[in-house]
Design a protein around this nucleic acid. Structure first.
Lengths: 215, 215, 215, 215
DNA sequence: AATGAATGAGCCTTCATTCAT
DNA sequence: TATGAATGAAGGCTCATTCAT
């Protein structure tokens, strides 16, 4: 098996990725202010100066890291489709379930990091809204509109507040970060319960395939 | 009218309060890490050293401030009662409404501060849970149990998740801090919609004796 | 002999002066860019942080030092008077002589420092012009006007160029800094020769005491 | 028309010249300390490492640049001749006039740079003295000796101080760099006035062609 | 010879905390 | 108790120089 020797450029890109990975770990562990660039460098196995070779400054590094982390999430978001024969409830559930799993694990730290630093740095909040939230809300709004049309909504007003769909996820992520050790919370059940409140079984004409997806 | 000359102890207490007020303002404005003790001292009208006479260190000052801020909230929480002739839905609404108003204003900053710093300092989170959250959850749990008994719950499982009652409030507070400028959100309507989903009009037969549930 | 114990404020002022003295020494020795604040602190016998307690930053320290150094010069300048019975030539000579002596010694370093940093920092040049040069030029202009009136000027145009009076001093200071080791220059004689070229013995009515001041 | 492909050596020389030109621009703009090698490289259109292939280090680059810049000046200096039928005054004037023009323009920056950095780096001052100043002074001395012989000198002592000839030029260059914006100075008139003070119309026997000062 | 990524010593500046008055 | 000058460890960032490609 031939392993091509990596070119200088490739090595540079690898370093950049190593720095981002290290930054992710350090920033989530200590927050922006308390994270030392030197620790990031050490963890990435590079010299301090190398970090500034790849990113203009500490803030730029944070942004670069955020961008890299958010990338796969955007892909996930864009993959949502309301497929025929599937209730809105099922579709939303299918969208949320992987997020729940991610967010209950180490990725929860990232979300909490974005929340807590976003509160301090408006630019980050704007970036987060533009790249992630606006997309999610658009999709949820469309799904809720479809649900309203099909009579799946428990309350008509829900269609105005797509935030209610994600609310238990957000609360759950915060809870995990703040109180999980003291008073554990079943994130999955929390979300499911919320969905049970928002949606009612669709009143389709008999003969249509009833979705059995969600328990 | 004679103004009693304040005793040494009284003056000391006044200073303590001034420091706490200043700390509240500065911490909410900049967060724990970015707040300088000197700025707090200046705002309080005392010397930097004086701050350290009243509090062991910066963290102790933060805790002292948190304690003082949370005090009136505890009183509000302890005042909740399920009064006869009042639905659970109404009671919960009456509890949440003043919070919504507070939280949409400058007090929202404090909540966001506590969330943001609680994620970083477990002791603060524990303190917050012990003093505030556990009480709120207890009360909500009791109310939800009563609601379940009366058939006011849209889903039985809701009784297990009192967090769902506060969820829109939390989400709303974060939204105000992060995205309100970009995409305003009606906090009041958000909460109301959530309550509409959690509760259904009680199905008691007319004239039936109203439950006395809460002591 | 009772030596009053210095108050805290007095000690602080002493430190400020020590820092300025140290800054003068270090800046003249290495220039602004190559001088380390830490070295200034060490030389002044204070901690590094103390320097920033007295001055906002390195540049502010430089300015403070410049201000302190220039103070006595201003006093010297303001003391110039064209006394009766004294030729302009003598008056100018009396003004320049102490400067020559200062400038040939360690004070020359300061002048060279101001020239070389002034070229880089316009604000310093402006400060220098406002505080020192404009005063000197005013006085020289007035003296040259008097000289013109008395027929002491070798050329009428000289009255337009008070800079010519100081020119040999400036050139001499630079020469001392640049080439004195290689090719020594007699600063005193240089200035005297220039004055001999600018002024002619005054054509006062016979009988008036002719000043022979300058050799 | 065929463009000969430049040999490796020629390309190397071109690069060296480009680097020197870039170094001149950057050094005069920011001074030695504040100039970044990277900026020089970028301006020269080469990589940072290339600069260090052509010059040992930053200081070597400065010296190389100085050498290149001074070359044409040396030629100008060596061209001075006291031609028959021309007064010393005229000859000196003819020598200074192009310098005045150069020095009032962008070349003034170079002179100021050499002064400013020469004060900091003795080797540069020595180099400057050896290559330029000693030649100029030799020539001036010879001219002044001739002037003395012809009775053109206003004062005999002037012959000892050739520095007085260039003094107004130096002062003027500094003035342009330091105060020209605040208080403009006519460099040409300044030099002319000084020459008027140093020289008197030659006392040649009648019939000899009288020089009429400046053409 | 040219490149430019990587290095790491160095420096300015901040700020919580101490302590003599 | 109050003061605020002093401290000094810590950390972000710069940039001349090196060296593998």
């Amino acid at each position: 098996m031939t392993q091509k020797k990596p070119s200088r450029q490739e090595r540079a890109q690898d370093r950049g990725e190593a720095i981002i990975a290290a930054a992710l770990a350090e920033f989530t562990a200590h927050g922006f202010a308390a994270t030392r660039v030197e620790d990031i460098a050490r963890r990435a196995g590079v010299a301090k100066g190398t970090v500034f070779h790849h990113f203009a400054d500490k803030e730029g590094l944070f942004e670069g890291m955020a961008r890299a982390v958010l990338k796969p999430w955007i892909d996930h978001i864009d993959s949502v489709r309301l497929e025929p024969g599937r209730s809105v409830r099922e579709t939303v559930g299918a969208f949320l379930r992987p997020l729940i799993r991610e967010v209950a694990g180490p990725r929860g730290d990232v979300v909490r990091l974005f929340i807590s630093e976003g509160l301090r740095f408006p630019r980050l909040a704007e970036f987060y809204y533009r790249e992630i939230l606006s997309r999610v809300l658009d999709i949820q709004r469309r799904l809720l509109a479809a649900a309203a049309e099909r009579g799946e909504l428990a309350q008509p007003a829900i269609a105005e507040f797509p935030q209610l769909v994600g609310a238990p996820l957000i609360v759950g992520v915060l809870w995990h970060g703040l109180f999980q050790r003291i008073d554990p919370l079943d994130l999955d059940a929390l979300v499911t319960t919320q969905l049970d409140c928002l949606f009612v079984p669709s009143q389709r004409p008999a003969g249509s395939p009833m979705s059995r997806g969600e328990p």
